[in-house]
Design a protein around this nucleic acid. Structure first.
Lengths: 154, 154
DNA sequence: ACTGAAACCATCGCGGT
DNA sequence: ACCGCGATGGTTTCAGT
């Protein structure tokens, strides 16, 4: 019958492996194989294929910013003034407190997430951007959905 | 002199370990030890402490959504109608296409990120929310800053 | 925090389904 | 073609210093 879900398909085994890795990316192949219902060599080969296919783009570590001195997180929408788009993009990239940023359609051009030690620090960062863009900042109060996998099945 | 950077402090060794793990969370302890300039047992003990201190909150896998059939990503700002806040929060949590969501200050109450297979699917998801909230959707065109670590030093 | 030894795990090739 | 099995080599872990 070929590949279960078309060329992009993940079968149940792949799904279990990705879910196990999302819970803990450092589990051994042995544990991964158990979670998937496979032998270690088979799990290793599957894992290699998932990386090769580009489905797994990285194994990363999640840091809790508040434990390393960043008690505040903000989401900032940024609308560069005419002619300032590229400069603003560079400022964002070079400001390490921006831990992610997307370029989007709509009134806003960029939506970024940043961590700061204090409101004063936030003010300092935004001041630099405000010379070249309109900004709109929202402080994060809670996270109802922590980063999670997209639906994996059909 | 005690702990280098106060109770929240990360010394250079911790920093090198976190950076190495951010690049690839599945490297062996041996490689991690090399990156940090330590023996394997020492690196293992440091790693254990970083988890115990809550600095490392998880080891996770990054999936490329486009490779599993989600070519589109959107950021949605959501402002529930009076009395609908909790219902809206539940809808978001129970919609698996929302892969993250924060509760924020300001006009918007929630800012979420979602993956979809098509604009039609996006429309279907937003229709459910629009009964109970105002929404404002931005499609992601590019990602100038991919998720990265906060600054680790002072 | 390092060294060395023992236990454990990953990897490779082979055979079976 | 894919999975499981078994041997080899490497890695993790634990003792002691």
């Amino acid at each position: 019958m070929g590949i279960p879900n078309g060329p992009l398909g993940l079968d149940e085994i792949d799904q279990r492996m990705l879910e196990a890795l999302a819970r803990n990316a450092r589990i051994s192949l042995k544990e991964l194989a158990e979670a998937a219902g496979l032998s270690s060599p088979s799990a290793a080969e599957r894992l290699r294929r998932l990386e090769e296919r580009g489905i797994i783009s990285a194994f990363t570590v999640d840091i809790a910013p508040e434990t390393i001195g960043y008690p505040l997180q903000a989401i900032v929408r940024i609308r560069p003034l005419p002619g300032q788009l590229h400069v603003v993009e560079r400022i964002i990239q070079e400001t390490p407190e921006f831990i992610e940023c997307d370029k989007v359609t709509g009134d806003d051009c960029f939506i970024g997430r940043l961590v700061v030690r204090s409101m004063g620090e936030l003010d300092g960062i935004l001041d630099k951007i405000t010379e070249r863009a309109e900004t709109n900042t929202s402080m994060i109060k809670a996270t109802p959905v922590k980063r999670r996998l997209p639906p994996l099945s059909r």
